[in-house]
Design a protein around this nucleic acid. Structure first.
Lengths: 336, 336
DNA sequence: CTGAAAGCGCTTACAG
DNA sequence: CTGAAAGCGCTTACAG
């Protein structure tokens, strides 16, 4: 049915080795031979069998991307960036989603192994330091995205959370705001994004000679739009006085924006609002949202390069930690 | 290094056939033997080699999803739905994106073949009827998503475009609107989403005893947010009088909403607005957007089931065309 | 520059 | 209920 290397070899009157040489662009093939083989390939519509190739070479040319949820635009945009970067290196990407529980996250990691991938990019969510052992069991090259909550032997690419949150907060302070809500904290968390961003917020407040008012630090459990909306509703219901909001991601910011506008709070006049992530949609809200570009496409590119280098090369090098550069993108929500 | 079937067999004191039987849940294995083998598997941390399995069985348990762009929330949400449906059937999903040109779309199709997938779901964009031949060259089971622009021998799952557009337009007419803009037409197109939706729009207008005003049919080339914004800007600049908008997708609708609000046009008081797709974010715009739920998760489920049935079964059946049920989701943008 | 042959790690008839 | 053996379609030393 489907043509194999043998069929092509027979049709071209050469050995399978020669056909293999042509397919893999081995340089030392006589031109006339090459042409004869290529004609046979065309005629038989030969396509190499990927499974046989993988079995022989030990490589699938495929990496996994393990993320929480593509419905979350941050991860959809990250996936896009990762797929482009992977393609540039000749790899395709198998995406594995997980739900917001430990078990589902572990299942995704196990799945990566089962699927015969060459390596994985893993955006950690629920797993913590106690699970470092489980990570080592993955048994293939792995690059972590997000915070360094593991002291494990893996490469790691992330953004400058604290510095970026400090810059965001300082931007509002420079605009004359003094009662700034931090929207999205995770009480008790230290090493995750929420903890690091809160630290940056506090540093900026203190650098301005002000004192952090705990009432302005508002927890938001999950960072989806609806959670930002609900948190802002509670803030307004409580009658809290504020003139700025640093939201810990864009989704929270957009949810909060929706509620503020609904309640007649004008942005940026009454309240200046800044988010995190530079999602595509932040350009189209009304007002357009000022935000932090965390360097996501750089993160994707660097992470893919690191992973592919580990896969194809000798991975003798020590684990690396790479921090992408961020950028404050000023739009309407903070400029009055 | 990595343990193989032979290593496990040796450790358990059985033949590799017995180990294989245990792994594949072949029922007739003595309990004590099974336990011995499982102990050896655990101890050696044995994991079956997927490439060898695929080579032998001719199956990769992996399907491709070929879509334009995950940054487009419609496709991100579709991908999420497809991955969940595929997982339920034991398959994983390799996503292949393409850009807005023919060549890139063809490359994605070719890539699917090269990657050794068992089948593909393909959301057609640029390719047209003239390319039907190319589709047949894919050489594996394929289910098309989107409009039936091919009279080819492939299964096909889509929504009721015309009926849904008619329902959307009728909804505005019932709300007392009479000058309704159709936002998103593709002049000259007949069989694509734009053509079908325009036909539904026209049918509703005429059913209400009104006449279609060509000036109200506004072309939008790409259906991204920014294109909807630009089209609406032009409409307002032209001084066109209207009191309703049927946008051919939610992104266009949200872009248009942004511009209308900016220009002081109130929604739904001055203009009623309805979109298409029921994206997650339509619940969070201000006002929340009335839209058509095209039955996307049903489409994903049905398409995956159809594809997997073709892969595992005898595909003697004739190509099938399946239409999902739609639902009008009424929100703030049309209720005054 | 090209050929003959081994072997990657499984599954699957075929025996018993 | 279990074993011995063939073979899926490649790549890769090894020869020449």
């Amino acid at each position: 049915m489907t043509a194999t290397l043998h069929d092509v070899a027979r049709a071209a009157g050469v050995s399978i080795k020669t056909v293999s040489n042509v397919i893999n662009n081995y340089p030392h093939v006589r031109v006339t031979t090459r042409e004869r083989v290529e004609a046979a390939i065309d005629q038989l519509q030969y396509r190499p069998n990927q499974a046989a190739r993988s079995l022989r070479s030990g490589r699938a040319d495929m990496i996994g991307l393990i993320v929480p949820d593509l419905r979350n635009p941050y991860f959809a945009e990250l996936a896009d960036d990762v797929m482009r970067a992977a393609r540039a290196r000749g790899f395709s990407v198998l995406i594995e989603q997980f739900d917001a529980d430990r078990e589902s996250e572990l299942a995704a990691l196990r799945g990566a192994r089962r699927r015969g991938l060459d390596g994985v990019l893993y955006s950690v969510l629920s797993l913590g330091e106690d699970d470092a052992e489980l990570l080592d069991e993955v048994g293939m090259p792995m690059v972590l995205l997000g915070e360094r909550i593991f002291h494990s032997a893996h490469d790691h690419v992330t953004m400058r959370n604290t510095e970026a949150a400090q810059a965001a907060t300082a931007h509002l302070l420079r605009g004359g705001r003094s009662r700034i809500v931090a929207l999205g904290s995770h009480p008790g968390e230290v090493v995750g994004s929420a903890g690091l961003r809160l630290r940056g917020y506090e540093a900026a407040i203190e650098a301005a000679g002000l004192t952090v008012d705990p009432a302005l630090v508002v927890p938001v459990d999950r960072w989806h739009r609806i959670d930002g909306a609900e948190a802002m509703r509670a803030v307004l219901d409580a009658g809290l006085a504020f003139d700025g909001v640093v939201a810990f991601n864009d989704s929270i910011a957009l949810g909060a924006m929706r509620v503020m506008l609904e309640r007649g709070v004008t942005i940026p006049d009454d309240v200046a609002l800044i988010g995190f992530d530079d999602l595509d949609e932040t350009r189209y809200s009304l007002p357009a949202l000022t935000t932090i570009d965390p360097g996501r496409s750089e993160i994707a590119r660097v992470a893919v390069d690191l992973l592919v280098d580990r896969i194809v090369g000798d991975d003798g090098d020590a684990p690396r930690e790479i921090l992408a550069e961020f950028r404050l993108v000023e739009r309407e929500s903070t400029s009055r």
